[in-house]
Design a binder for these strands. Structure first.
Ligand SMILES: [Zn+2]
Ligand SMILES: [Zn+2]
Ligand SMILES: [Zn+2]
Ligand SMILES: [Zn+2]
Lengths: 144, 144
DNA sequence: GGGCGTAATGTTATACAATAACAATCAGGT
DNA sequence: ACCTGATTGTTATTGTATAACATTACGCCC
């Protein structure tokens, strides 16, 4: 899906769920889309400053928080960064794979596998609400 | 296991695997042990400064990195913090449960469940080396 | 013991990440 | 026009982590 298509789909998605994808938020989303892999907040900030002239950290953090809230982005704690969710429409549980050789970051839809984890948590009386699962290793391309 | 017993076991463990648990590293480990739940680097730094008079961030970060490397601590990315591993002796895959009500952080040994995740990753040609898995929710005590 | 190489620690400075607090603006409803 | 709540702007600060280089401690060979 091209960035433009993604943006259009995101518009419709927010419209449908009653949240407002404002010009600023849309611009931030476009900036994230314009880069491959994981994107850092301060990188977005720098890009935004190039396009707008002035911007401060809260501006970009608020927009990123909104986008994560809507499910358009996922935050990757292990990297202090964000990735675009390729299938925000359908409810899903994310599993993030990080290649330590080439830096590739991809999202695997591992909904089934995660049931096991939730079960393991439930055995200890723990009720999970959200998750942040990262596997670090080597991707397909980088296998020695 | 008491902190003293833990420290003694850690000594033997490092000895056995040929790594050096120096006085500084041992002191940092003791400081982490002295606190419940998740511990932040700058908290350890403050404690260390109280005991030693002077210390800088690299000192505590290097010690923490060593302890994580040895498997005595786990880093919890989602919290920018560290927890003591209660069973560093046996190889295991960690799953960290974080209660958003009371702040409790515990480690569940979910080795079996994780096979599924690794399998999901393998299907994409990805070879996981290490992981950081966090579930956020409510613990047994905090269920409304 | 003296010299040597490596690992560990000390020191200073800086980079990177995130939020607090408050002001100004915008958009929709009455 | 007026009110209200959401969004954005602005300034300042706090928190997290590492770079770069100096110094010290330790094991080993001679
Ligand atoms: Zn996703
Ligand atoms: Zn790779
Ligand atoms: Zn553990
Ligand atoms: Zn709790």
């Amino acid at each position: 899906m091209s960035p433009d298509d993604y943006l259009a789909a995101a518009e419709r998605y927010c419209e449908a769920r009653g949240s407002k994808l404002t010009a600023l938020r849309r611009q931030v989303l476009a900036l994230v889309l314009s880069q491959p892999g994981v994107v850092k907040a301060y990188q977005v900030l720098a890009d935004l400053q190039r396009e707008r002239g002035a911007a401060a950290p809260p501006t970009v953090y608020r927009a990123l928080d909104f986008l994560v809230e809507q499910g358009l982005l996922h935050r990757v704690d292990a990297l202090n960064g964000f990735i675009v969710c390729p299938h925000f429409e359908c409810a899903h549980e994310g599993l993030i794979l990080v290649c330590e050789r080439c830096g590739l970051v991809e999202e695997a839809d591992a909904t089934n596998s995660l049931d096991m984890l939730h079960q393991a948590a439930a055995e200890r009386g723990f009720a999970p609400r959200r998750q942040n699962l990262v596997l670090t290793g080597t991707c397909k391309e980088c296998h020695a």
